[in-house]
Design a protein around this nucleic acid. Structure first.
Length: 223
DNA sequence: GAGTGTCG
DNA sequence: CCCG
């Protein structure tokens, strides 16, 4: 960890931190596009509203979710899965906004993952106290493609584990504008988010928005 | 199948 | 708050 000094300007912006052989945190990478990205999220959730999914075990997830793209991640009594329609409406998920796709592809490339064609864009809204338990992203057919994660609004503590749930974890803060990309041998690492601390952000007010991109198939599945 | 949650 |  580097100590920050008041004499340096924006030392935490566009800094690339390796958190594994195939995993990187890009500090401040999307600050420039923050307003446009949030506008895109608002457009999506106007058509597919945030909702609290239920785990197969019957527990309500604290985080509220929506999706855009060809497929969306959902969970209910029957299990975790991807599906092309919003269970609330039966409609196809909203089209993935250009700015979101372009941002994800650019970040994947910066992390060394070319030809990333995400067909899923999962949007998670965290409010005070909301958390995400340690888990692996393993519902995707294509574990070759990386995961790209964007953080907007309030800061959160990211919990970054290993390939086994019981292994050691590291914690670091994800702030507005940060991006994390993980793939390759880090693709199945356990990860989670500590309970969000209450706060106020100029762009998102009382919440943190996390956007993750996944590619479920090997073909070109963009739309 | 479900621990992307809850409890001690 | 952290761990299991």
């Amino acid at each position: 960890m580097q100590q920050q000094s008041d004499f340096f300007l924006s030392t935490d912006q566009d800094e690339q931190l390796a958190i594994g052989p195939g995993a990187f945190c890009f500090k401040g990478a999307i600050i420039q596009d923050g307003v446009e990205i949030i506008r895109a999220v608002n457009d999506v959730v106007a058509k597919a509203e945030f909702r609290h999914l239920i785990t197969p075990g019957g527990r309500r997830m604290s985080v509220a979710m929506s999706n855009c793209g060809r497929q969306g991640w959902v969970s209910d009594h029957a299990g975790y899965r991807y599906q092309t329609t919003d269970p609330l409406t039966g409609n196809a998920w909203p089209v993935m906004p250009r700015i979101l796709l372009a941002t994800a592809q650019s970040l994947a490339a910066r992390a060394g993952f070319g030809n990333f064609n995400p067909d899923v864009c999962l949007i998670n809204r965290y409010r005070a106290g909301d958390r995400m338990g340690l888990h692996q992203d393993r519902d995707e057919g294509n574990v070759t493609a990386p995961i790209v994660s964007l953080s907007l609004g309030l800061p959160a503590t990211f919990i970054w584990g290993g390939l086994q749930r019981s292994g050691p974890t590291q914690r670091f803060i994800l702030e507005h504008g940060d991006a994390v990309v993980w793939g390759g041998e880090d693709r199945l690492r356990f990860h989670g988010v500590a309970p969000l601390k209450a706060g106020e952000h100029p762009l998102t007010k009382d919440c943190r928005i996390n956007i993750t991109f996944r590619q479920t198939g090997s073909l070109d599945t963009c739309r």
